[in-house]
Amino acid sequence: MALADSSIEPRLLESAKKEFLARGFELASLKDICDRAQVTTGALYKRYRGKEELFAAVVAEGVNSIEEARKNKSDFDFDLMSDDDLKNAWKMNKELLTGWFKLFENYRDSVVLLVKCSSGTRYSNFKHDFIEYVAENSYSMYEELIRRRLTDKKISKKIMHTLHSAYFEMVFEPYVHNFSWEDICENIDAMISFFDFEKFIGIK
């Protein structure tokens, strides 16, 4: 019995990544993807049900790593946090912010695909959903500050979301506009200078 060609899937994924990056999901051509990978469309459909499933496979590793990091950095057990821990969580931390960008750099192509090329896929709201998740967790932290009387400033969920939207525009825009790492480092310094979450929250 003939062995399956193990090189087909990597070739398909690499060809698909190039096509999606060049043309976006909606304009990408499965025929062009197959031609570049030197495989038949039949071989593609044996592995993927269609273009969206192929797109999902291309970004899967990046999506999984980013979502795992987001959960690890956004989910808090308030019972284990001192008042100082809770207040320090709002400080602009260059090391932490740089860590996010280094993670995104490891999956740069996936990040570009998710924020720039995913219209028409299940990931078309990736950026919005990412921001919403973090903003919801931040609002829970804010409510804990209120409960502990560490702030008495009144902030609505809508305003919390707006602040995070502005913040994450500066996180994701470098991947829309193909910033170099040097540009990203400048962007990090600008974010730290511009955003003052402690003042916004009114931490005592």
Rank of each mutant, 00 (worst) to 15 (best):
F194I: 12
K154M: 13
K157G: 01
K102W: 02
M141H: 09
N125I: 10
F101P: 09
H161Q: 10
W181F: 10
V176F: 05
A190R: 08
C185R: 14
I146N: 05
F168G: 04
R149N: 09
D152K: 15
T162Q: 11
T162F: 06
I155Q: 03
L96F: 15
R108L: 06
N178M: 02
S118K: 04
V134G: 01
G120N: 08
I146A: 02
K157E: 07
L114Y: 06
T121M: 12
E169L: 03
V111P: 00
A190C: 09
V176P: 01
F101K: 07
S138Q: 10
S124Y: 06
C185M: 15
W181R: 15
N187P: 10
V111S: 03
T98N: 09
K158L: 06
S110M: 10
S138A: 08
R149P: 00
N137E: 10
E132Y: 02
V176I: 10
L145D: 04
E186Q: 12
H161A: 01
I159V: 05
T162N: 07
E169M: 08
L163T: 01
S124K: 12
K154E: 15
C117R: 08
S140R: 08
Y107F: 12
C117G: 01
T151W: 15
D196A: 05
Y133F: 09
H164T: 03
I192S: 06
E143S: 04
F130Y: 14
V115L: 07
S110W: 10
Y133C: 01
L96E: 15
H161N: 06
I184Q: 02
K199Q: 04
F197I: 07
N125P: 04
F195K: 08
L97N: 07
Y107P: 09
M160L: 06
N137Q: 10
S118P: 14
D152Y: 07
Y123E: 04
A190T: 13
A190K: 14
F179W: 01
K127Q: 14
C185S: 08
E143G: 01
M170F: 09
V115R: 12
D152Q: 14
H177I: 02
D189G: 03
D183Q: 11
D129R: 12
H161C: 00
R148A: 07
T162M: 13
K102V: 05
R149Q: 04
H164G: 03
F168K: 01
W100E: 11
L145I: 06
Y175C: 06
M160S: 11
